[in-house]
Design a protein around this nucleic acid. Sequence first.
DNA 1: CCTACGATCTCCAGTGGCTGTAGCTTCAAG
DNA 2: CTTGAAGCTACAGCCACTGGAGATCGTAGG
Lengths: 149, 149
Amino acid sequence: METGMAIGELARRTGTKVQTIRYYEQIGLLPEPLRTAGGQRRYGEAERRRLGFVRHARELGFGLEAIRELLDLAADPGRDCAHADRIAKANLGDVRRKIARLQALEQELARMVEECRGGRVEECRVLEVLADHDLCLSPEHAPPASPEP
Amino acid sequence: METGMAIGELARRTGTKVQTIRYYEQIGLLPEPLRTAGGQRRYGEAERRRLGFVRHARELGFGLEAIRELLDLAADPGRDCAHADRIAKANLGDVRRKIARLQALEQELARMVEECRGGRVEECRVLEVLADHDLCLSPEHAPPASPEP
DNA sequence: CCTACGATCTCCAGTGGCTGTAGCTTCAAG
DNA sequence: CTTGAAGCTACAGCCACTGGAGATCGTAGG
């Protein structure tokens, strides 16, 4: 009879770590699966698809709360999809802001590294720039919109 | 006599939160400052410059461990600056990898959002793409090199 | 049936870089 | 001397996992 797959196989098939699957279950992102008599988790295709959705959304930068909402929406096919659209747009905005910020950093870092001609620390451009913000071309590299890695 | 500034003023002058300053002290990034008889911290110009260096480096994306190394280097002006250069280059590489990854995400998200013409969830392009990785143009949006926000 | 061994179990702690809270004490102005 | 802002310590929480300890389960081979 259909017994389902163990957590390790689900992990392998979705490119997720075993602990991460258990974590998703713990925070209620995945439902509690069936268990064997001995207490081990067994999963079916529905769970595999759900986890696939989660992983894919994560890869695209969605946060777990956003994913929770998206899963709720997907479970209710008759509803208007404006909400899903809004979530995706918010995420896109986030991603774009992060790109803009990182590009500003890249400019400063590249200039800093390029100007360092490898003498002694005394005359190191890298340390000099770090010590004095005024040496930056754009003093506008403010802290990020959303928290940094 | 010179009593130095309180933590709040240092915070204001460097654009740092008070708790963050205490946290930096706790992890040994800033030295323990002088205290008043009542136990409050008092800072001088040297500390202000050091914190300024830290904040500036943070804004440029350096991690606290990298900053610790940079501070050590800066304290020793006779040494070769190759190490500082290496740290900065590593950070630049990190930033560039993050940009590349985010740009890939941006592509997918933008396409996803654009194709969603706001019908019902049933026919929502956003949810469809999330449910089926094969609908992505580049299946190459792998997990990030360094951990995500 | 027994053993061996990998897979799985639960629980807990740690990551980075802060941020917020509770319940105090201290400082400085009036 | 009073008051109110600012400081103090200690600890919990954030996100999204990740790793480890130590026990148990499942299954293949003998």
